[in-house]
Nucleic acid binder design. Structure first.
Lengths: 186, 186
DNA sequence: TTGTCATGAGACAAATATGTCTCATTTGGT
DNA sequence: ACCAAATGAGACATATTTGTCTCATGACAA
């Protein structure tokens, strides 16, 4: 009975991330071609470009949340949780990039959900502060921004073939918690 | 004799950065409106959208280079130079964002110039390594990525009204060189 | 085989964006 | 006041994108 290619919808979403993260003003057509799908088929799943964009935003947040949730499951501390989350996010950074680039103010619901996720990150960071991982003199907002920025940097490293996901995540975490300074120079 | 409003061209470029950094698929029309200029006038300065995009890319690199060059002038070391450069770049981060988002592969000349600038950054980082500022165990490429990512994070802080340019640059530099860890926790 | 359903290809119209042109108005120098 | 250059507004044609529709094909279950 089920003749729906369960892959199709996901393939389109994946193609959307691929295409739009390289050229955020790309056309629907490019997404369809990348997904190996006709434009008509794309419209059968997503009624309009806005619809696709919205679905991509939700999918991005979903995937990120799921990945983080799963990675953090067995964490023994908030600090460890943050490190595991970072490692889990690196391979999905183009999702985060999509969210960052998309003019989110157009869709209040998405903007709100995005803000909620950010608040949770900040809350976790403050717990990690209490664990002594981060200095309480540094604004949590800044730590959160650094977290995201370095995660993205890690993704770039992987994309450029300069490191594996694991290595890049390790670098980002180290930079976040210890900086890049020369230990002997301290 | 000179009745050219010297501001006009610059105003359009500035508007371009403003508009495209918020919505990289915006139309020419939006840029013109933001610049307080008719679409026709925009076309008098930039024959096509591609032309405008290219001009924006060159302008971005120009402004960044000029700002850095000027800031670094009196630096006593490569390390100090990097810090001064970072501070100078923060207010111009939307230029860097534009360059990062723009599909640069379309214009080989721009891509090449961009690569050259990046090489120079890496070269300076390696000098700073010799000065003991950065650990030689850490890939210079990663330090460069972190440098850019944290500069962008600093710009976001400023944009969100969470810090002044100076404060944000200080945070970024500190994070880069010392991390965000708790000194007492070491 | 037969029937159903997802699909790809492509025709088509509508919407949007782009580039050119004209003209009346404004601006700034003389 | 006068003039020349720059401008804004908007008409216009073209190009691109988007959304709808139809139809032939292929996959798959009965």
């Amino acid at each position: 009975m089920t003749k729906i290619r369960l892959d199709t919808k996901d393939a389109i979403l994946q193609a959307g991330f691929d295409v739009f993260s390289k050229n955020s003003s790309a056309s629907i057509d490019k997404v369809a071609k990348r997904a190996g799908v006709g434009r008509a088929t794309l419209h059968r799943y997503f009624s309009s470009k806005d619809d696709l964009m919205e679905a991509l935003a939700w999918a991005a947040m979903d995937e990120l949340n799921k990945a983080v949730e799963d990675a953090v499951k067995d964490a023994q501390s908030y600090t460890e949780g943050l490190k595991l989350a970072l490692t889990a996010i690196v391979p999905l950074s183009n999702r985060q990039l999509f969210l960052a680039n998309e003019p989110l103010d157009k869709n209040p619901k998405i903007a709100k959900a995005y803000q909620k996720d950010r608040q949770e990150l900040i809350a976790d960071i403050e717990k990690a502060k209490q664990e002594g991982t981060f200095s309480s003199d540094i604004p949590s907002k800044w730590i959160a921004e650094s977290f995201e920025a370095l995660t993205y940097a890690a993704w770039v490293m992987v994309n450029d073939g300069e490191a594996t996901h694991k290595q890049a995540a390790e670098l980002a975490w180290h930079t976040l918690t210890a900086g890049l300074s020369n230990p002997t120079g301290q």
